[in-house]
Design a protein around this nucleic acid. Structure first.
Lengths: 204, 204
DNA sequence: GAGAAATATTGCATGGTCTGCAAAGGTTGG
DNA sequence: CCAACCTTTGCAGACCATGCAATATTTCTC
């Protein structure tokens, strides 16, 4: 990785960290883009070369962009063949980026604090979830070979996002939290939905 | 209803209609608040007395604020006693405001065009759904007498919103669409979720 | 009805977000 | 070291949104 690329990453990170720190200190309304830029030692104009909006700098890269390999495996009917289990595998990749686990946990905790302090930011998160939902719906449609007219993939994707948001709220991002725990929590949520909305059993 | 109230409603409606019309004509980016205000024959400042943001004027009042009576009936375990059926009853009230049916259908159609033309507006809609979700979670918790620690109500509310968004997309708001059809569509969506995520049957 | 109280509208000033453009600065590769 | 390339920066400007004080309109009271 060249110098140019390294500098860009550093600047991006500096802007995000400055934004998050200042916002946690003073609240979103009392932090201007100019202040964030000063803190990160760049011009205001440069801030907007990195982020289209102030919000975007704070929200970071969650949910992560899906791993293309995982997506393809899902579309091809893998990795286990069980729809819900494979769906969970995909959902987990949305939650986990390529960075190291410790950094990511710290980030998630910061973001959690941020959205608690500034509920307006939830708006942005929901918009991102919606984008993921659209992608997921596409993947489900491909896997099931659904007709383009068939809207079931969209419904399942929407419900999956509900489960995902719910699970994210329940995670505490501590060191003792294993990836397997995440899977178990997602599985449990799906099971609850199944229980609650299951059609009457065919005992009539 | 006094003159003042009538004028306020007229102004509000004029602003909404002007905003929607201009946006459909030219696109959201090419319509300023000032132009909308001029079109509605009020000052720019007055626009912001009615709506906090430009977006808000376009999105209107959907989802509708929930009917308190319906909410209470749900909390009390009614109207039928069947959880999912009663849930659907509540969801339907979110979709239907107090205005007459024809006006509402026309409005919904316009909004549908609007969000298709300007996907950014979906953001605002999602935020509204999220607010409804929070209210619904509260109502479910009350009805089921869930412990405040219990997060199942939140999950069910989130899934309900998934179903609701899905159903709204499927509605075509035509004259031949009966309220009963809406209920049937929602019921069908819940049933599909139940089927897909149902736990393995207890035949072991 | 006339005047007082309540409420709505408006203009103005202001601060903040975000964009386009062109100049200046740093990085890369030959 | 130079030339191509990319990034940063300053500047001007459009627009959104808010607070405040003045003005206009409606409603209430007598």
């Amino acid at each position: 990785m060249g110098l140019r690329e390294r500098k860009k990453r550093a600047t991006r990170r500096a802007l995000q960290e400055a934004g998050i720190r200042l916002t946690l200190e003073r609240g979103l309304e009392n932090v201007t883009v100019e202040e964030i830029a000063v803190e990160a030692d760049v011009s205001t104009r440069t801030f907007f070369n990195y982020f289209a909006t102030k919000e975007e700098a704070l929200l970071g890269d969650v949910p992560a962009t899906p791993d293309e390999q995982v997506r393809q495996a899902f579309v091809d009917g893998g990795p286990t063949g069980d729809f819900v289990e494979d769906l969970i595998t995909v959902l987990i990749t949305f939650l986990v980026s390529t960075e190291d686990l410790a950094t990511q946990r710290a980030d998630m905790l910061l973001r959690k604090q941020l959205t608690e302090r500034e509920p307006q930011l939830v708006r942005g998160l929901l918009a991102r979830f919606h984008n993921v939902e659209l992608e997921l719906a596409g993947a489900i449609a491909e896997r099931t070979g659904a007709d383009p007219e068939d809207d079931r993939p969209q419904l399942l994707a929407a419900a999956s996002m509900a489960v995902m948001r719910h699970t994210m709220k329940r995670l505490h991002y501590s060191e003792t939290e294993e990836p397997a725990d995440v899977r178990a929590k997602i599985r449990e949520a799906f099971r609850r939905l199944g229980e609650t909305f299951a059609p009457p059993s065919n005992t009539d």
